[in-house]
C-alpha cells in the first residue's frame, strides 16, 4: 500500500519549521512525532575522563552538563559504536563555555558555542577528555534531536453571513494554521482571533480530516528538515524489520 503524502511548508528555518501533511492518519502522525523525539540517532558526550577538576561542581554534574550540549551530527558518517573524543582545557578565572570543547572532527562540533558549563574562579582549572557516542532519545534526553514537537489538525474556515448586529461581541480564538480557500494562514498573523480577520462575519471552524500541521524545533544537531526525514527513515526501517521477523 503506497500512498503519497502531500507536504507543504508554512515556515522553514534552520532550527524551527511548521509544515502541513495531508493524507495521513492520526496514528501515523503520532508515530512521526514519537520517531522525531525518540528514534533519531544523535551524538552526545557520554563518558568524560577528568584530568583535573577543581571547580565548584562535582565531576558527574559537569559530565551531565557536557552531555546536554548538542553536537552536530552528520548523516551516515557514524555507526552505533563509533566515538568522537572532544577535549576541554580552561583555567580560571574564566568561564568554560561549550565552545571551548575542541573536536578532532570539523563535522562534529558543539551546535551552540555560548553555553556556560562552569564558572572558574582564580586558581581553579578544568581539564577533561569527553567521549561522544551515538544514541537515541529513548535512552537519554540528551540524545533527543527534536524538542517541543507537536501537531494539530488543520482548521478549515468557512465564512458565512454577516453577524447579527446585536450579537455577542466575543473573540473567537483559534490556534494553529487555518485554511481559507486555498490559502494557508498561521493564526499568529491575526492575533489568533478570527474576529480580527473577518470582522462582522459569522465564521465556522472545522477540523480538516487527515491533515496535520506539525511544529518541529531542532536542538541544533541537524537542520529540521533533515531531522524529520531521518525520523521517517527510522520508521520505515523498523517496519521492514517487523515484516522480516513475522514472515516465515
Amino acid at each position: 500500500m503506497a500512498t503519497d503524502f502531500d507536504v507543504e511548508f508554512i515556515e522553514d528555518t534552520e532550527r524551527e519549521a511548521r509544515f502541513l501533511v495531508r493524507g495521513i492518519t492520526p496514528a501515523f502522525a503520532n508515530g512521526i512525532r514519537r520517531a522525531i523525539l525518540a528514534d533519531v540517532p544523535t551524538l552526545s558526550i557520554d563518558t568524560v575522563r577528568f584530568v583535573e577538576n577543581s571547580s565548584v561542581l562535582f565531576d558527574e554534574v559537569l559530565a551531565l552538563r557536557m552531555g546536554l550540549v548538542p553536537l552536530t551530527t552528520p548523516e551516515g558518517e557514524f555507526d552505533e559504536d563509533d566515538t568522537v573524543t572532544l577535549a576541554i582545557d580552561v583555567e580560571g578565572p574564566a568561564t568554560a563555555y561549550s565552545g571551548d570543547l575542541v573536536s578532532p572532527d570539523p563535522q562534529v562540533e558543539p551546535a551552540d558555542e555560548n553555553i556556560p558549563l562552569i564558572e572558574l574562579k582564580d586558581g581553579q582549572r578544568l581539564e577533561a577528555e569527553a567521549e561522544a557516542k551515538l544514541g537515541r532519545g529513548r535512552d537519554h534526553a540528551k540524545f533527543q534531536g527534536g524538542v517541543a514537537v507537536g501537531y494539530r489538525h488543520l482548521q478549515h474556515v468557512e465564512v458565512g453571513d454577516d453577524a447579527s448586529e446585536y450579537g455577542e461581541d466575543e473573540a473567537q480564538i483559534v490556534r494553529g494554521v487555518i485554511e481559507d480557500g486555498d490559502e494557508l494562514v498561521a493564526t499568529s498573523e491575526f492575533g489568533h482571533d478570527l474576529t480580527n480577520r473577518y470582522p462582522g462575519k459569522e465564521v465556522t471552524v472545522e477540523d480538516v480530516p487527515n491533515a496535520f500541521v506539525f511544529h518541529v524545533e531542532s536542538d541544533g544537531s541537524m537542520p529540521v528538515d533533515e531531522l524529520v526525514l531521518r525520523a521517517v527513515d527510522t520508521l520505515s526501517t523498523r517496519a521492514d524489520e517487523l515484516r522480516e521477523k513475522v514472515s516465515l
Partner: peptide
C-alpha cells in the same frame, strides 16, 4: 550555574543566560 536545557521541553537555553 544555569541549566543547559529547559527541564520540560529540552530546548537549549544556556546560551542565552548571559545576555
Amino acid at each position: 550555574m544555569v541549566p543547559v536545557r529547559c527541564f520540560t521541553c529540552g530546548t537549549v537555553i544556556g546560551e542565552h543566560w548571559e545576555e
